[in-house]
């Protein structure tokens, strides 16, 4: 019963999100999958396609605290993490938490920040805690980062190194809406207003329960065979600069589980893996052939389902 309940709620969330972000059902599902899998999401896209709206919508729907950082090249780690200020009245240092102390953090144009600031953020993302002046402070639970990145050919950016990119569980690109969605968008009222009207769909610990449930989704031997086949193909085919890491393999499996939960199933099927594979390997694989823009397509085309 619990499971069905979750399924209905998740569907409701997706339905509502679809009214805000038009014509992006698959992307919304992927983003929700990422949240269920307790991972961070990287959106690579041009400005103005609805990245912020997406992040904001999920924060609202899940009843989470939302904050946003617009990265610039002169930003310092303290601008993200927070700073201790000496207060004369109390005669001591008081910590002023930075914008990172929230549930959903939208890190806009993360590649505009200097590597120093980038790594401060990414470290906090990974550890889910911030250490400043010798004191460790936990980030709120849940903690979820949606980072956006402009396509790196733009001037004045610091592209994230591969190791840092690996910290993001998934990477998607929203892309332009299709004609119908675009028309609807243009005809309707401002999305921001609609955003303010939506209410939280989940209670306090429900998201946590769902995330727990993802852990219990079954993966059969046959499915693990398929995942392994994908991993080894990425390493041995010679089509990619370097293969998928074991961490990437775990990520793929975890995201597949979350996707299976979204499909109201308690076991993973190859279709789940295929559905999430593009967003999991997009930022992790670099095809040797520069003409290939979608590395996942190569894997899907060549790896046989055992």
């Amino acid at each position: 019963m619990n499971k069905n309940n979750h399924y209905d709620q998740l569907n409701h969330i997706i339905d509502v999100a679809n009214t805000i972000i038009l014509g992006k059902d698959h992307k919304i599902r992927l983003a929700l999958t990422c949240i269920l899998a307790k991972g961070h999401l990287l959106i690579e896209d041009l400005p103005g396609v609805g990245k912020t709206t997406l992040a904001h919508t999920f924060a609202q729907l899940l009843g989470l605290e939302f904050s946003r950082i617009q990265f610039t090249s002169d930003m310092l780690p303290a601008d993200v993490l927070g700073i201790s200020v000496f207060e004369q009245a109390a005669n001591k240092f008081t910590f002023h938490p930075g914008p990172i102390f929230c549930n959903v953090l939208l890190a806009d144009e993360i590649n505009r920040a200097t590597p120093k600031t980038q790594s401060a953020l990414l470290e906090a993302m990974e550890e889910k805690q911030v250490t400043l002046d010798g004191k460790t402070r936990n980030l709120p639970e849940p903690f979820f980062v949606i980072a956006t990145q402009n396509p790196s050919e733009q001037i004045g950016t610091f592209p994230l190194p591969e190791s840092q990119l690996d910290r993001f569980l998934m990477s998607i690109s929203l892309g332009y809406p299709d004609a119908t969605a675009e028309r609807q968008l243009l005809a309707a009222n401002d999305r921001r207003e609609a955003l303010n009207e939506i209410t939280a769909c989940l209670q306090d610990n429900q998201l946590h329960q769902m995330q727990d449930q993802v852990q219990h989704i079954k993966t059969s031997d046959a499915l693990l065979d398929y995942v392994q086949a994908l991993l080894s193909y990425s390493r041995e085919s010679g089509l990619f600069a370097y293969g998928l890491s074991p961490r990437a393999g775990l990520a793929l499996l975890h995201v597949s589980k979350a996707w299976a939960l979204l499909s109201d199933r308690d076991y993973v099927i190859p279709e789940d893996v295929q559905a999430v594979l593009p967003s999991v390997v997009r930022h992790r694989l670099q095809p040797i052939d520069p003409a290939v823009s979608k590395p996942a397509a190569l894997l899907l085309k060549d790896v046989v389902i055992p």
């Binding site: 099927i269 190859p270 279709e271 295929q274 899907l300 085309k301 060549d302 790896v303 046989v304 389902i305």
Partner: peptide, 8 residues
């Protein structure tokens, strides 16, 4: 197709 899932 060998790479095609059963549901697809």
């Amino acid at each position: 197709e060998a790479t095609e899932g059963a549901i697809n």
